[in-house]
Design a protein around this nucleic acid. Structure first.
Lengths: 110, 110
DNA sequence: GTTCATATATAACATTCTTATATGTAAGGG
DNA sequence: CCCTTACATATAAGAATGTTATATATGAAC
């Protein structure tokens, strides 16, 4: 798995991107990130929950308490319009980081 | 320029990579990083100097005081064998982050 | 009734950035 | 001779985002 120093800052992008495909609660979000990256990118829930609060305060996502069919209380987050607007420049900034690091460090883009 | 939250963790890789091309002192290192990334990646000296100390303590680089032709005192860092050894898995880890984020977030690799 | 998967929450700590501040030398222009 | 700019290193205070550890609670399965 990718270490903490390197993945730092990716959680925000990851959460916004996954929520783009539909609303989700924290526990499931963590699993999606891990699954969709084949285990390469993995966040603890203790990192994700505070991140979700911050993103809600910034207006990028909106959470609502729901009850699952199994009777479980959980907080479902969905992307807001502001969140969608945020996603595009954020992707671009990451893309720029990639090309900058390729030029500088010969990191492959396989 | 790429923001602080996103570039976080890149300094280590950047320093090792630039030093791979030859020994350099901190001030010039900062300039190389900025130039070779066309201004996309930029570090303040206040970030680089402590980073250089940490990397020296870890044994990845070795610093020695030199005096330039202009009579300036400066600390010249060169990559150690351990530093070279570190660089390869570090590049691989970044490369894995790239592909993980591409899969997860549709960040382009232009 | 005990254990496992689900689900959220918080505290204490580490790391790596930021801005601001400090010191000092060399070179060049006025 | 003084002032400004470029060179060169150093440190402090604070922000952001990750870590491990701990706590709580429910439903399902055995």
């Amino acid at each position: 798995m990718i270490g903490p120093g390197i993945k730092r800052g990716t959680a925000e992008l990851a959460v916004l991107s996954v929520l783009e495909d539909g609303p989700l609660h924290g526990y499931e979000l963590a699993r999606r990130i891990e699954q969709q990256t084949k285990g390469a990118l993995r966040f603890t829930l203790a990192a994700l929950y505070p991140m979700l609060y911050r993103m809600e305060q910034r207006g990028w996502i909106r959470g609502s308490w729901e009850t699952s069919q199994q009777g479980r209380r959980r907080r479902c987050y969905r992307l807001t319009a502001a969140g969608k607007t945020k996603l595009s420049p954020l992707r671009k900034e990451w893309s720029e980081l990639f090309s900058a690091l390729r030029r500088l460090t010969k990191v492959s883009h396989a």
